[in-house]
Design a protein around this nucleic acid. Structure first.
Lengths: 151, 151
DNA sequence: TCAAGCCATGGACGCCATCGACCTGCGCCT
DNA sequence: AGGCGCAGGTCGATGGCGTCCATGGCTTGA
């Protein structure tokens, strides 16, 4: 993981569909060299995936909300997590420090669906209560930040 | 925006580097047809970008936190937003319903950097107070959910 | 019913991904 | 100190792919 790898990562975070030839031009290496470097970054798990980022409204997911989960005292966190994992509406799931053990980002089509999702989460064994905040608008999302050499 | 477009979007959200030929095979069309459809989805703004998803720790961004912002009564929301926008550590920014006007997802290298970021946000004119929660671990992030026909 | 426009098809061409062979610089072992 | 081995690079070739174009069918609207 040197400066060129970081540069490749930044380029791919900006446009994951760049050709190897294009990447090679940008970093001043040959295309096969870039190909090998990117391949190693992929198998090392540094690059997890390449995703198209889509306007959520256009695919019927116009409602975004953040949900905090407070667990029962004595709840099995793994069970709660497993229950959350099978809900496709949960886009992101962070395990947090603080009263609320989990913070979820969820995406649904309508407020009615959000209501159903909240009910389902509240019914999950181990969940004591939830706190939901609805996003009125998304100013930006997943904005890439230049990487740094890890100390 | 028909069923095939949705299918293409789902495929590209799963792997943004699929070749057009591969996409064409999956949806049962010719490569040029797929090329044209994807091009239209891009110019229509449905597909916003193609991004490589990276393990944050490996690029020196091991600390993730969520920050809620409460604005001063009478604060100019646009000014606050403009101030937030120039902070590269803020990965996502949602304008929320509720007491906290903004919910941020931030990514920094160390707790010390997080502290500095919080101070900077609190000093921003229009910001009354903030509430920060640190993510101990990320269970998953940006998990794509199959799109639906928009009603 | 007819016309027009949109979209998929298939072919052609040039670029790109990818493989193999060779080279070079560095670290290590003798 | 010198030689060996390896990691990682360039170069060249080839096969597949992206991309443009002309053609033809289907659907829509008058």
């Amino acid at each position: 993981m040197d400066a060129i790898d970081l540069r490749l990562i930044d380029l791919l975070r900006d446009n994951a569909r760049s050709s190897y030839a294009e990447l090679a031009r940008q970093v001043g290496l040959s295309a096969p060299a870039v190909h090998e470097r990117v391949g190693k970054l992929e198998t090392a798990g540094t690059i997890r995936a390449y995703r198209a980022e889509v306007e959520p409204e256009t695919i019927g997911l116009g409602v975004t909300a953040l949900i905090g989960i407070i667990e029962d005292s004595g709840a099995d966190t793994d069970d709660v997590l497993a229950a959350l994992r099978v809900m496709p509406e949960i886009e992101s799931c962070h395990f947090m420090a603080g009263v609320e053990s989990y913070q979820l980002t969820v995406r649904v089509g309508t407020i009615a669906e959000l209501e159903q999702l909240i009910v389902r989460i509240n019914r999950t064994p181990g969940v004591a209560s939830t706190r939901t905040a609805i996003a009125l608008s998304t100013k930006w999302e997943n904005r890439p930040q230049p990487g740094r050499e890890v100390a």
